[in-house]
Every structure is written in C-alpha cells, then in structure tokens.
Write a protein that binds this DNA or RNA. Sequence first.
DNA 1: TGTACATCAGTGAACGCGCGTTCACTGATGTAC
DNA 2: TGTACATCAGTGAACGCGCGTTCACTGATGTAC
Lengths: 207, 207
Amino acid sequence: MPYSAGHKADTRQRIIASAADLLRSEGIAGTGIAKVMKHAGLTHGGFYAHFNSKNDLVSAAFEEAVLDAGRKLTEGLEGIEKQERLAHYIGRYLSRVHRDNPELGCPLAALGSELSRGDEGARQGFERGLRRLVSGLDKLLPVELINAHTANAADDELFLAVMSMMVGGLMLSRAVGDQDYSDHILRSTRRAAVELLHKPVNAGDIQ
Amino acid sequence: MPYSAGHKADTRQRIIASAADLLRSEGIAGTGIAKVMKHAGLTHGGFYAHFNSKNDLVSAAFEEAVLDAGRKLTEGLEGIEKQERLAHYIGRYLSRVHRDNPELGCPLAALGSELSRGDEGARQGFERGLRRLVSGLDKLLPVELINAHTANAADDELFLAVMSMMVGGLMLSRAVGDQDYSDHILRSTRRAAVELLHKPVNAGDIQ
DNA sequence: TGTACATCAGTGAACGCGCGTTCACTGATGTAC
DNA sequence: TGTACATCAGTGAACGCGCGTTCACTGATGTAC
C-alpha cells in the first residue's frame, strides 16, 4: 500500500476544515469546490475521491463548524467562576470579535437562513448542531441555577429562547450597515439574554 | 406615447412583487432573473429595461418584502385590545403559518445570513428594514407599557432584543428537521418574548 | 370616424462565465524480491 | 541495502448547465391627420 495508513483520512479532514471556514464566511452558494480545495492546498479534481457530492461536504463541514465553534466559545471557561460562566459565554457569542470573524464562529448564525431552504439531510445536520449548542449551554449552567428551575423541560425552553436571541442578534448585527447600530444590537441582546437566564434565580428563593 | 402613463411603472411593481415572493422562499442565490420574470408573466429579456442589475432588483424587492410582511403581521391588530396587541403580534410572528410560508413573511429571517455577506447597499437596506420593524413593535406597545419604561432608549434595547429572539427563533424553527422540535422552538421563543416584554410592568408599580 | 405612423415595452436568441462533476493521466509512495 | 513494481492520492483538462447580461427585433399601443 502506497502512502501511510491515515494519509487519505488526514487529507479529507483538511478539506472539511477548509470548507468549514469558507462556508461560514462565504455561505453555501459562495463556497465552490475549487475554492475549498485550493484553500486546503489541493486541486479541485481530487475532490470526488473524498466526497460523493458538494452536499456531502457541506454536511460534514457544517458538523465540523459546530464542533469548532463550540470549542472556541467554551475554551478556558472552566477557569471562570461557575456563576459567571454563562454570562461569559453569552458575552463571547455576542461580541464584536465573533461578529467580525464569522469563519471562526457559530455556523447557525452564518448559515441559518440558507440551510432553512436545504434538503432533509442538511436540516437534520442543522438540528443536531442546535441541540449540541443548547446542551452545551446546559452544561455551563451552575448547579445552583439548575436547582432553581422547576424542571429540565423548563430549562430547555429557556435555553432555546436564549439561543434564538443569540443567533438572531449575531445575525442581525452582521447584516446591518451602520457599525454603531450593530454594536447596539450586540449590547442589547447581551444584556437581555443574561437577564433572561438569571431571572429564575432572582425571582426564586435561592441564595 | 404608446401605452398608458403608468404602464411601465405597473410592470416594474409586478416584477418587484414577484421577486419579493421568490427571494423569501428561494433565497438570493436561488432567485434567478428568468424565474422572477416568468413568475411576473414576462420573459427574461425585458428585465434590463426596468433594472440596472440583479442587485438593484434585490434591494427593491427586499424593501417591498419588509413592507409586505409588516402589513400582514399587523393587519387587523387595531381590533384587538391594546394590552394584547404585542402578544398577538409575537404570536403571529412565531406561528406555524409564518414558519411554513416564508414567501409571505419576514425577510429578515428568510434572508438574514445571506444578506450579512451582502454589499454596502444590501446591508443598508437590511438595516432600514430592521429599524422599520422595530419601530413597528414600538407603535404596538400600549401606552401603559411605554410609561412603565424608564426611557425610550431602554425601550429600543428591549425591542431589539425581542426582535432578535423572534428573527432567530423563526429562522431556527425553519432550519430544523424534526417538526416537533420546530414547534417546540416556536413555543419557547413565543413565551420568552412575551414574558420579556411584559416584565417591566410586572416588576414596576403600574396597575 | 378611420388609417398610417412613430414609439417603446416586451421578446427570444446569444454571449461569456463559473459552477459541480467526470475522467484519463501522473508520479510519489510502501512493498516484494 | 538496493531496485523494480503495483497502488492510488492527487492532477488538470474537459463536459454540460444555469446564471446574469446584451441586443437586434417585434408588435401592441396612443397620436396625428
């Protein structure tokens, strides 16, 4: 056998990583096979030795983007006091850095409206990504807060609502022309999201 | 002069309306000139007698879509008690009908992530649309609620956050594969949005 | 009132381009001897 | 240890197609006489 065992798998992973970047900064329609392969240091002809179609690549790259964004958004959060973690997470998500670097960030906000017109497979992938991010929020929640909630179903509702606000706020902040207004959107959603998550504690009898 | 005075303007409006529908259901990349013209009962060759480029059409059609969605979302709301109007508005926005008929609905949710990669002009149009919808929310707010707020700046913050949640929630509900989960997103965001808007009253001393 | 005409909204063929996809090939690699 | 070979990851030219855009034209219309 020519080439070492993992060689082809490594290349495949490089293509996926390249696509995960380009997808988030250029969108699905804007991400051509040739561009992806070039960005991975290859020529476009070799693409179909790794994937059956562009759709296959988009699926794999979207999943990779979700994992990548999750890693970056939670990185180093263990070092922060439990009570403050969620606020930090929200602050990172709705930050100017995140807004200005879509290729490193959340693919839900970057590809949401494009994927809402996707096929069954794409929408399933999107759903998996959303569930993963919501359950990530879950894990960031300090024990005290979890206890303050009446049930996990109520948590899930709240997290979904907060996640919607975060995804929507980031997307709107990117789509808006005026930078001041864009900053304003980030600030407004950041505050409201934190407030919304902390309210059960304030209203309850913990502490 | 052949043809009556408003003839060409009427045709132009028909093309814009056709594009406003197609844009919301198929996205920008998915909306070809030929498709738009056919949907308006014309052939594609005539397009450039009305617009300089596809970009020009997209701008005009996006603005029309914002107005159209605004009309449909507020239609008949005068007949409803002031205190209930906002909840109705939110309920309509985050409804299954709205989710399942993007061609009749809010273009922010339908085109957000695609327009966040648009040029200066597109982003300016998007911003005008967002401001219009947010100020529409403003007008729906009952006087009592307005008085309960400390300042208009605070209102604006709150509306932006609620609008972000609505846009994000609708987009997520469309992009998700499983129908139950999609319904769940709509329900969760509906409740949280209404709660968020009404809280200042509950926390304050009005009523 | 009827007709010839000028206007111009709309037609349909054609263009160049980039896309996703295919395929005959090339040449770097691990293996057998 | 050195060489010939089989393998197959990657190359690059080519394809058909749909796109945005252009343009010579057609024919329905309001107007002048």
